[in-house]
Structure formats: structure tokens, C-alpha cells
Computed example of a mutant assay.
Amino acid sequence: MGVIDDVIVVGAGVVGLTTAVRLAERGLRVRVWSRDPVTETTSAVAGALWWPYRIEPAERVGAWALASLRVYEELAAADPVATGVRLVPGVHADTVRDGLGAWAKEVDGLRQLAPEEVPGPYEVGLAGRLPLIDMPVHLAWLRGRLTALGGVVERRVVRDLAEAGSAVVVNCAGLGARELVPDGGMRAVRGQLVLVENPGVDTWFTAASGAAGASSETTYFFPQPGRLVLGGTAEEDAEVLEPVPATAASIVARCARVRPEIAGARVLGHRVGLRPAREGGVRLEARPLPGGGLLVHNYGHGGAGVTVAWGCAEEAARLATEH
């Protein structure tokens, strides 16, 4: 394939914008097409803590996640206010370092806790200082970075990837890939959050399951500027976008078992997002388009789009420019 200078990226969530930035940094003219405003994408709802959770394929995720971790560490050191990225201490309950992938050995400062150090009704925990991303701020920063590089974001509903008429199209449509590709392996995993006034919590906490046998329940809280984000749920094939009051009450109660002061915190709002999970995991590959063009797929990141965004973006940019 010859030299390209024009790329369409479909999707303006964290994966789409990060990919667009990496492409623009290579000197390409990049246009992002998005059905929704950047601030109303699924990514805008995310918690969002760096951690390779519920994402496949395992043999590729570690490298993507570690590449992203290094970028977030740089952004946190450079300007946490503008980028929305901070390094914050916290605990993953019910987690053993030796049970994680090889990537965990590359994460500085992970420490297995003694039982008496684990907060709440948990006996096992892993402590770490990890990137915590304020997604509305970070998405705005990504868009600003792209604009500074000459890229543009356009509101546009794409019904066929061939619409682009560009030499290279990068598909970062998330759950939209279900119809757009089409990909019958895409599944929505519903996440519900509660935003409350922060009663003084300055560390994050996660536990994969809220109760025995309740695999759709998770327990976590993330201190973000101006709010404490409480979660959550992981409900497969559930696509109700309205918050469920009983679910919200259960989320608050689970978090309060870890930090009792959360029980009385004033509720600021509720959020629901549909994670774009895919059977077989992330699809990141290039395919030829009729007429000599190239289609690069970069979707299916589930709830870990933030965690692998930069690593996947770098690979997608390489596929787009080296074919």
C-alpha cells in the first residue's frame, strides 16, 4: 500500500480518540466520526481505574496494558489537572498477585496485604498506586490534543464502514460494531454507578464480587475531583440505560460495608453505561477494503478500554500506516 495521509476513525470514546491522537502524531490528517458527543460516549461514564480486568485475549492484553500504564504515569507526572490522570493508592480485595498475568511483575509497588490490613469484610487484598482517570476531563484533553495536531471530531451516524471513502478507516465503534461490522459476538455488559459527595475518602477500593454467587455485582469506589464514584454492576446482555433505584441502594450499601461513612453521603447523581464486550476479546487487526483501501478494527475492549487504550492505539496506528 502506498503513502497515506487521510484517515477516518469511527468512534469517539477513549479508544477512538486515543487512536486518533496516535495517528495524528504520525503526521496523518485524521477525522473522527462519532454518533454521540465525546462527553456522552460510554467512556465518559467509566470509573476509571487502570487495571486489566475482564478483558481478553490474555496473551496480548498485558503488553497493551503496560504500554498504557507508562503513558498514564507520564500524564499524571506532567499535568494531572489538565489530563485528568492521577496516581492514587488503593486496594484490590480478593486479589492475589501470583494469580495475575506476567504483566503484574512489571507494575511497581504492588504489595500483598496481610489479612488485618484488608479493609471491609475481606481477608485477601493487593495494594497499589495506580492511574485513576477522571474521564470527562481526560476525554476533553484527548480531543484538545487531537485538535492541536490538526485532527477534527465530527458528529456523524455511520451505517456502513465503506461510507468513509478514505484510504484507511479505523473502526473504534465499541458496541456499535455489533451492527456496523456486523459482529454477532458483541455483548453489552451493563454498569451502573452512583455519584456521591466525598465524605473524606482518598483511596480507591475494588472487589470483584459483592456477595457469594452474585457475579453481576461488584464493589468499588473511586475518589474523583468533586465526587466519589460508587459501583457497580456487570450485567451481561442487559441494555437498560435508566438507573435502577434498588441497584443504586445495593451499591451504596456494599461500599458502606468497606467505608461506613459512605452510607450517609449525599447522592449527586446516577450513571449507566454499556461496556462493549466481545466473545474472544479485543479485535485488533487489519483487513483490505474494496478499491485498495484498508480497514483496521480496534474494538471489543469491554470494561477495560481505558486500561489498554494507548497500547491498542499504538498497534492500530502501526497497522494503519505499515500495510
Rank of each mutant, 00 (worst) to 15 (best):
A256G: 11
A212T: 10
L268Q: 07
V258I: 08
V229A: 13
T218D: 14
E197H: 12
T247Y: 03
L195T: 15
S209M: 12
R259S: 12
N198K: 06
A214C: 09
A263N: 06
L241A: 11
D237R: 10
R259H: 05
R271E: 15
R254P: 02
G213V: 00
Q224V: 11
C255L: 05
G226L: 03
E197D: 10
V267A: 10
P243A: 07
M186N: 03
P223S: 10
I251G: 04
G191I: 04
R266L: 11
G210R: 09
F221Q: 01
W204R: 01
Q192S: 12
F221N: 00
A211P: 04
A265F: 07
G184L: 10
Y220T: 10
T247D: 05
T206Y: 14
G232W: 05
R257G: 15
R266Q: 15
R271N: 07
E261S: 08
L193S: 08
A238P: 02
A208S: 14
D202Y: 14
T233P: 10
G184S: 12
E261Y: 03
G200K: 08
I262K: 02
I262H: 02
A212N: 11
A208T: 14
R271Y: 09
S209N: 13
G200A: 04
F205E: 02
V252N: 05
E239R: 15
A207K: 01
A188V: 11
V258T: 03
S216Y: 11
H270F: 15
T233C: 08
V252K: 12
P225V: 04
P260F: 09
R266T: 14
R271G: 12
E235Y: 00
S250F: 04
G191L: 07
V194P: 04
R254Y: 06
E235H: 00
V201T: 09
D202F: 15
E242S: 14
E217V: 01
A253D: 14
V201C: 08
G200F: 10
T203C: 13
V244D: 13
R227Y: 04
A246Q: 08
R266K: 13
A256F: 05
R227N: 02
E236G: 00
E217F: 00
R187V: 13
R254V: 03
A188M: 04
A208R: 11
N198G: 08
A246N: 05
R271L: 15
V252F: 06
P260N: 03
S215R: 08
L268C: 04
L228T: 01
E261C: 09
G210V: 07
E217H: 00
V267H: 03
V258Q: 02
Q192K: 06
L268N: 03
P223I: 07
A248E: 09
L230N: 05
P223F: 08
L193F: 15
G273L: 01
P199S: 06
T218K: 13
F205P: 00
G264W: 03
V194I: 07
Q224E: 12
A256M: 05
G191K: 00
F205W: 02
G210H: 09
G269A: 08
H270L: 15
V189W: 12
T206M: 14
N198I: 10
S209H: 15
V258H: 01
Q192E: 09
